[in-house]
Design a protein around this nucleic acid. Sequence first.
DNA 1: CAACTGACTATAC
DNA 2: GGTATAGCCAGTT
Length: 134
Amino acid sequence: MTQSPRDERDYFERIYTVVEQVPWGKVATYGDIATLVGDGCDARVVGHALGALGARSATVPWQRIINRTGGISLTGHGQRERLEEEGVAFDDRGNARMDAHHWSGPSEEWARANGFQTLPRTAEKPASAQLRLF
DNA sequence: CAACTGACTATAC
DNA sequence: GGTATAGCCAGTT
């Protein structure tokens, strides 16, 4: 792979690349994406990048990126509907169930191969051994 | 080049 | 848990 944009400081492209890694039916927060991109990237930059998607909005799963509280920051674009279509459950407050659909981040292998970082921790914990819905 | 804006987040009350 | 304020960074004017 000679197409490693690690030297490139194009935050937007890197952000898009990370967002594309979010699997179907999963969601990630702006902060998570920023952490994965690293290099001083910030949650707000992620929001700007997604806002500047333009035609790429068809190829980048921007709808899977939500805020820290699991709520939809952008209204009027049917983001919640799209997520529900993917099987993402929401609470009465309109917050997505982060505990059930929060993306745990890309594989360490992929992240290292592409010059990205992995989430420090705090994503989710197997503990509690709570019961499985099914 | 300085100031404002924005699909954010952490802390404080 | 909600509102209010500060901090944060890149892009735009």
